[in-house]
Design a protein around this nucleic acid. Structure first.
Length: 492
RNA sequence: GGCCCCAUCGUCUAGUGGUUAGGACAUCGGCCUCUCACGCCGGUAACACGAGUUCGAAUCUCGUUGGGGUCACCA
């Protein structure tokens, strides 16, 4: 029996992420990629990206592009793979057909695999017949061609000659020893009728050829690991280590799909989560580091280890995800000012605000950090600083820009026109002076002023807002607000 | 159904024989206050069940129940 190599302590590990390009990058896939990437980065190892496109029907170049884009956006850079090449390429399975054919032939020559001439139709018929007799029975390939001595040059698949007795055991870094009785195995197909390899063959050949030392993937692959182990043994190759990750299920506990939540990485990018926010949520799913919830990319690399990975499946929680994303946007040490601004600009553009002055943007940023839960939300909070006139919320205008408010707005505009300094403190002092003189509480004028300045009933503190807007816009808006309050019709 | 795996608040989790079972999200109160948000204080809320082992089990063993995965010429 082949032996399982250790976690690779010593030699730098070589790990891989091997998506099949049949759609966008799923967050579950992103998590698998992340765990592999973290392991490689923390150990000075190599992260290989391999495209498993042996199923010509389902694979597409668009999907490859989408997956590569998402990985790049997440910052999960690969050392070998598409577009970067590497010593053990090619990294598209569709370009390695000859190698798989040769590997399968060697197994046939060694008597460990055989040509099977049974057609799909024949097998389906047998399956039907069995079902008719016993609806509960599970059809297994009866071994019709297993002991054929001739191998006519007719269309065929290649089947692996699986052992019928004993058991296959492999050691998993997360789950420990997993043993499966060999009676459970049937003579599974390794090469299709069209000559293309099936997953188990291609994955084993590639993982071996690419010198992969640790195979980390979703728990849904645990079931075919024994088949792969059998293949390694048949080839006489050393086993890599295995690590299976617990599943990410829907909030209802089913397999996570679009029906339950946004599952594509690109959806979170479009929504304005930062890549680190996404990675942070994903990594905490199945992995923990004491009570710590928030991690920078660097911390993740420093702290990740397999012994802190959980065994139990979990349910996706959009609210928690949103909160983690928010933390990353809120903390300057996680998303610094300049980067925040760079990232929010496209979202502003989407709202029709092109080329907002960088200075004002920078001034407004501290006011929205605590408020914006994602970049789309940030653009919303930033909107009125850059739109002139601002969008006036109809209900807000109706409720607060009433005739009584007009004289206050007018008087404040005059007072501010004469104010020397233009900073939050001076602005506050000025307004408080006015209130004192009129013997009014702050509440009497706050909302009308806010609506005049921002068009909304909710905003950051008035004086901070005015400081960002500057004197000209502040005066313009206060006076426009006064006009609206008087019921003077057109505000402009 | 066979095989494999899992089991702490609603959710993500800490915990590795002795804790008032901790944190975070969500939720519910309160404080702060020019609105919103942030922040702060506090509340509700969990060891699936049953047998063992032990002076003592969330922690170890077995069983039950529940959940998930997998049984393709998909990956």
């Amino acid at each position: 029996m082949a032996t399982t190599s250790s976690t690779g302590a010593g030699a730098p590990p070589r790990v891989r992420f091997a998506p099949s390009p049949s759609g966008y990058l799923h967050i579950g896939g992103a998590r698998t990629a992340l765990f592999n990437w973290l392991w490689a980065r923390s150990q000075g190892g190599t992260f290989v990206l391999r495209i498993e496109d042996t199923d010509e029907e389902r694979s597409s170049l668009d999907s490859v592009r989408a997956i590569l884009d998402s990985l790049r956006w997440l910052g999960l850079d690969w050392d070998e793979g598409p577009e970067v090449g590497g010593e053990f390429g090619p990294y598209f399975q569709s370009e390695r057909k000859e190698r798989y054919r040769e590997a399968a032939e060697s197994l046939i020559a060694a008597g460990k695999a055989y040509r099977c001439y049974c057609t799909k139709e024949e097998l389906d018929a047998q399956r039907e017949a069995l079902k008719a007799k016993n609806p509960k029975a599970q059809f297994v390939y009866p071994g019709t061609c297993r002991d054929r001595t001739d191998q006519p040059d007719l269309e065929h698949v290649v089947r692996f000659k699986a052992p019928t007795a004993g058991a296959t055991t492999f050691h998993d870094l997360v789950f420990g020893a997993i043993t499966t009785p060999n009676e459970q195995q049937q003579d599974f197909v390794i090469v299709r009728r069209n000559g293309l390899p099936l997953y188990n063959l291609a994955a084993v050949v590639d993982d071996h050829d690419m010198r992969i030392t640790l195979v980390a993937r979703g728990r849904d692959h645990i079931g075919n690991t024994p088949q792969q182990v059998l293949l390694y043994e048949a080839f006489g190759w050393e086993l890599p280590a295995f690590a299976h990750l617990p599943m990410m299920l829907s909030p209802q506990g089913e397999k996570l799909s679009k029906r339950h939540a946004a599952v594509s990485v690109s959806e979170y990018r479009d929504r304005g989560y930062t890549p680190e926010g996404v990675l942070n949520y994903l990594v905490r799913f199945g992995w923990s580091y004491g009570d710590q919830e928030i991690f920078s990319r660097q911390e993740l690399i420093e702290k990740f280890s397999w012994d802190r990975v959980n065994k139990s499946d979990g349910k996706f929680d959009a609210a928690k995800f949103a909160d983690v994303a928010f933390e990353h946007l809120k903390r300057p040490e996680l998303t610094d000012d300049e980067r925040y601004l760079d990232e929010v600009v496209p979202f502003l553009a989407q709202a029709g605000i092109e080329d907002p002055p960088r200075d004002r943007l920078r001034q407004a940023l501290p006011l929205i950090r605590e408020r914006a839960r994602d970049l789309a939300d940030a653009a919303h909070h930033l909107d009125f600083y850059f739109r002139e006139p601002p969008r006036m919320d109809e209900k807000a205008v109706k409720k607060f820009l009433v005739p009584d408010a007009a004289p206050h707005l007018e008087a404040l505009a005059d007072a501010y026109a004469a104010l020397g300094e233009w900073d939050a403190n001076s602005l506050q002092g000025c307004l408080e002076g006015y209130l004192q003189q009129k013997e009014l509480p702050m509440k009497a004028v706050a909302q009308p002023v806010r609506v005049a300045l921002s068009g909304r009933t909710a905003s950051p503190g008035l004086f901070e807002v005015m400081a960002v807007l500057g004197r000209d816009l502040t005066l313009t808006r206060l006076r426009r607000g006064a006009a609206l309050a008087r019921g003077a019709g057109s505000a402009a």
